[in-house]
Design a protein around this nucleic acid. Sequence first.
DNA 1: CCCCAGTTTAACAAAATTGTTAAACAAAAT
DNA 2: ATTTTGTTTAACAATTTTGTTAAACTGGGG
Lengths: 204, 204
Amino acid sequence: MTKTTEEIIMDAAIKVFTRGGYAAARTSDIAREAGINRALLHYYFRDKQTIFNLIFEGRFKEFFGGLFKVMQSEDSLEEKIRKIINHEIGTLILHPDLPRFIAIEVASRPELLVEYGTKLGLNPRMLIARFEELTRAEIAKGNIRDIDPKQLLINIMSLSIYPFVAQPIIRVMMQMDPVMFQQSMERRKQEVFEFVMNAIKKHA
Amino acid sequence: MTKTTEEIIMDAAIKVFTRGGYAAARTSDIAREAGINRALLHYYFRDKQTIFNLIFEGRFKEFFGGLFKVMQSEDSLEEKIRKIINHEIGTLILHPDLPRFIAIEVASRPELLVEYGTKLGLNPRMLIARFEELTRAEIAKGNIRDIDPKQLLINIMSLSIYPFVAQPIIRVMMQMDPVMFQQSMERRKQEVFEFVMNAIKKHA
DNA sequence: CCCCAGTTTAACAAAATTGTTAAACAAAAT
DNA sequence: ATTTTGTTTAACAATTTTGTTAAACTGGGG
């Protein structure tokens, strides 16, 4: 389980790139973070852009890959909602900077989304199709109140992801240290689930 | 109402800085966006950092200033929730890049939050105190279900703000053009309000 | 012991970006 | 009409960041 230098560099690059995006990342930061020097960095990788591409693809997959799998499962709506929330918050506890990183890079070059999406065989229509269908069925059966399935999905994602994007702000506003924040996010899996289920439940 | 060159430059700088943050902004981008040249930019402003500071303070105020006012109003909880949502989504429809910008800069230099917060006389404790008190009172009265007021506030912010942070991603996933997105956000004011109120309502 | 992949050092070249300057020019103000 | 102010151009200096190179060193494998 001892890491190769290549892996050490990649891990460092992930940290530095995800912290502030491509433009803010210095190759010297990556080297320092990896505990090596810049020359060695170029010994293993052509240049900054090459490292970035490798990382972006990996992070992109991490962020969307699992989501796609969960989204296409054959569960009930309730179970699917639970799995989406658990999956999102769970991976983000391990990789808190991920959503900000993706947001920064996709905002500055939106074509990345389509490019890497197709590269990984992810089809946006497929992603939401089953969820939409399932939600409409539950509405038709009268199990939940009438709500736009797309908005519901946006709501679930918002509740799961936003706290990580805004982590530093929330930490100050709510006066939490990093440990408290992480614990809070652990509890949040259940709380967000309840919040959503309550929100879509019918009231007498 | 004709703009001074200074204002034109500032407007351009807002666009460029909020698009990708300080590190990704080129002074030549700002000049091009303003329709002037780099020399003139330095004629009006000392340097890039000076322009950035002015803009960050302004954007920070825009983002948090109004929120603080709303948060301290004397409304009922329900009315306060409605106002928070309307205020957040309303200003973000006008300035969609704002939350990503704040998130990027605060993440790379968290001390900015405290620095500009105190500079503008905004106290985080004050911000949430009234909201927390009010929520607890409603819980005690049995009007809403038992929920952590901080989590509730995070939920409201998440639902209001996240869609703008993730705008490019949502647009692709949900297959919306920019106009559809904006219309969708207009409707969202009401939908988020209903979603939240349902979520905290008690069930039989 | 010697070789060699991996690594460091240090110097440097190349590129990108920022900031400065002087000169010329345009338009408005006096 | 001429000064002043705002603006452009173009060249360039300074700085920062990236990428390259050569030489030396290190430690383990053959």
